[in-house]
């Protein structure tokens, strides 16, 4: 692999991405276009996150990669390995020891700290995409702050289902400005976006967009005054560590409908088991 630069990308590309990252951090929630490169993994499998991570990493970093909250899912393994080979950085599964965390679909249960960077893989960065498919129009809506349509969608949910029926990729408003897609994390994780001490970076490779939340940015999940945002999770307890407050995966245990719940965050769960033992 010596034919490749540190963390795969050439320095010119990294500089281009870092410029986009700086702009993104300066304008929280704004989607900065960037010239996304073809990566050696498919679009939609984290190419945006990988490019952001590659441009962020320095040799002293300790990297954690999770998918669905777990360190050992196949895609997390594949991306972690990629950086082990191309950057030679230390990797870890422990959320509090990592300096950079790349994630798909979850925010760790362990609270993030100042100095950490979390990189989200984003499939569709445009929160308005499914209301208005045209990029030219959605950019105008963002620049004019025309977000009435977003609430029309939430209104329709309540009218039809009696509650807001968006359960993941739940749209948020950054400060008093942009409406942002938090990536397909469950809405349970949305409160962790708000005022986080960590730097939060979002990379969408196929869609060529980068956006960011600098530390301590206020982030509010969209809702109505009389139908406030509800990050609730299913009542249940982790069968391994007994947690009643973490986000749970449902596991089917037999073919007669038997099932159990387990923490989706494997690092959090394993450590609780260890501490309890």
């Amino acid at each position: 692999m010596s034919a490749y630069n540190f963390a795969y990308l050439d320095e010119q590309t990294k500089r281009m991405i870092r410029r986009a990252l700086l702009k993104a951090v300066a304008i929280p929630g704004y989607q900065v276009p960037f010239a996304s490169r073809e990566m050696p993994m498919p679009y939609g499998w984290g190419t945006g996150g990988v490019q952001v991570t590659a441009s962020t990493l320095v040799p002293e970093d300790r990297l954690k990669v999770i998918d669905q909250g777990a360190d050992d899912t196949t895609n997390a393994v594949s991306i972690r390995r990629f950086f082990e080979v191309t950057a030679g950085v230390e990797t870890t599964t422990e959320a509090d020891r990592a300096t950079v965390i790349q994630t798909r679909h979850r925010i760790p249960e362990t609270p993030l700290q100042e100095g950490q960077i979390i990189v989200y893989q984003v499939p569709i960065p445009e929160p308005l995409r499914f209301l208005e498919p045209r990029e030219t129009e959605t950019r105008k809506m963002h620049s004019l702050g025309e977000y009435g349509l977003m609430h029309v969608k939430l209104y329709e949910d309540i009218a039809r289902h009696g509650e807001i029926a968006t359960t993941y990729a739940y749209p948020v408003r950054v400060g008093k400005s942009y409406v942002m897609d938090p990536s397909p994390i469950p809405k349970f994780d949305n409160p962790k976006l708000n005022g986080s001490p960590a730097i939060q970076l979002f990379g969408a490779g196929r869609e060529q967009r980068i956006y960011a939340l600098p530390p301590w940015t206020p982030v509010k999940s969209l809702d109505f005054e009389d139908y406030p945002f509800d990050p609730s999770r299913a009542a249940g307890q982790c069968a391994l560590c007994g947690s009643t407050s973490s986000y749970l995966d449902e596991v089917i245990t037999d073919d007669s409908g038997g099932r159990m719940f387990l923490c989706s965050d494997t690092d959090y769960c394993a450590r609780r088991v260890q501490e309890g033992a």
Partner: peptide
């Protein structure tokens, strides 16, 4: 092809919700 095939990746967190 990347985006189409990425739906093979686990989505169980979102599906759970």
């Amino acid at each position: 092809t990347g985006f189409l095939e990425h739906i093979k990746l686990p989505h169980y967190v979102d599906f759970q919700s």
